[in-house]
Design a protein around this nucleic acid. Structure first.
Lengths: 149, 149
DNA sequence: TATTCCCTTTACGTTAACGTCAAGCATAAC
DNA sequence: GTTATGCTTGACGTTAACGTAAAGGGAATA
């Protein structure tokens, strides 16, 4: 993992100036890219893979807050090691949810259960890894202790 | 993530028959592969990448418990999203630790700190993802409630 | 002795997730 | 008007992490 960082810089929350006029802010691809420290190419690629479908203004892509959130979730999924295909399956089902048929909904619950189990495994892996880190650090410091006064 | 499973089947602990004769058990590549549900090819590849260096008996590879542990840690690292290159760096430093010079040891501590921060980020990601899952499941069940009696 | 396994190396193939040009349009700034 | 900036669509390139097939060794079993 080359880039563990990523917290989506807060941006100026100067939108709620005098009330609840949120629905205005949109983003160009470059802005969004900078926000999440990815390249525009990455964002276009995600669209091509069916993970985003921004509005178009002529030729240009216009991203709304909904798109930003979806990108955020996508990147989080990636950091968790999911493939784009897996993420897309959830996304598609999610989009189809309101009018979804029973079978789709049950499929969704199925996937959710899988992901949940997955998260548990990951938590366990992290726990174990943290212990490993503690262990190695202890030994490491012990050796250093013997080398430095 | 295609294969979230993986708990390294306990194998028969029939080794400690009458005392502490542990140092005997070794494994062929096929055994090890089956244990961890990977292919022999994967294990050979890890060796080629400098993550394992099993003993040789003639042409055949012989894996000791130390190798098994290292493979286990490697696979865990992978599940956590580390690249083989990252894992190797740690492994190499770890091997060099006992006789390691001060610079290497400090580098090790540096890496450990990075990994630790990384684990924290992952924990946060998992926490958020779990909330997402809860959220989606709730909506999902709500829609189902309206469709089924 | 012949067959069956399991192993070996070599080497080319594959997939996901982008990177990296290239060529061109459009709007804002000068 | 023209220059600069940021966008657009191809299209080919790249990297990691193996998969897969070929050709063969050796020991154990039928």
């Amino acid at each position: 993992m080359p880039k563990p960082s990523q917290t989506e810089s807060q941006a100026t929350p100067a939108d709620s100036a005098a009330g609840t006029l949120k629905r205005k802010r949109t983003f160009a691809i470059g802005e969004l890219a900078e926000m999440f420290e990815v390249t525009p190419r990455t964002i276009r690629f995600y669209e091509q893979e069916g993970l985003l479908s921004p509005e178009r203004k002529g030729q240009r892509r216009i991203y709304h807050d909904k798109d930003r959130v979806r990108l955020k979730l996508t990147l989080r999924g990636k950091r968790l090691g999911f493939t784009l295909a897996e993420i897309r399956e959830v996304v598609e089902l999610y989009d189809a949810m309101p009018g979804g048929n029973t079978r789709q909904l049950h499929r969704m619950l199925e996937i959710l259960a899988e992901k949940r189990a997955d998260m548990e495994q990951r938590l366990e892996d992290i726990r174990l890894m943290q212990h490993e880190l503690d262990d190695v650090e202890t030994r490491c410091r012990a050796v250093l202790e013997r080398l430095e006064p």
